[in-house]
Amino acid sequence: MGTIIWTTIGAVLTLSVYSFLYKDNPFYKFAEHLVVGISAGYYLVIYYFNFIQPNVVAPVFLLRFGDEVIGFGSSTWWLALIPGLLGLLLYTRFFPKVGWIGRWSLGIYVGGYAGLSLSPTMQARVLNQISANALPLTSVTNVFLIVGLLGTLTYFFFSMKHKGVLGVMARVGIVFLMVGFGASFGYTVMSRVSLLIGRVGFLLQDWLHLL
């Protein structure tokens, strides 16, 4: 019985959202606001019980990290406390006079993330791709790949005007880009259609049991 009720609520909401295809209406608006409101509340609960509780509250106040009892003032304790405090500092912007303190946390956050991603990006996106693209020019596919790669790189070269050879290369690059966008477009249509198929499958099978 419970399943029927929940499935029906899901089905009604699905249909409310699809009603937007006809035109904007109160059912769609209701569903839209419901999603925004519920997701905000849901996220709050998930964040608290999956992260703040085990990784901040438990070590700092209950002196427990997993099954490990940690000492007050131990390294684990400090490592839970300091980031927690930095996070709390973000709330200083509710008090305009001391709001600037929040920038410290923001600075550490932005700087830390930028640093973390630097070396892996260089490896994954540059070095490994360079070695993978140093292909022997023995097949048509390889020649095609190299020409496309050089053309596209030239298109995104901003230090010279696109004239002469550079202009031709850039033109080749944009052709490859557009072909790439076309392929991407096709994949995306497939993705969007899958979403519709999934919902239709839900309506026909899980809700109406027609299949």
Binding site: A124, N128, Q129, A132, A183, Y187, T188, S191, S194
Partner: peptide, 17 residues
Amino acid sequence: VTAVMATDLYPFLDTGQ
């Protein structure tokens, strides 16, 4: 991944990543 994202990840297949 979703089909939308597949083209983003293809370069990682050839390199064994």
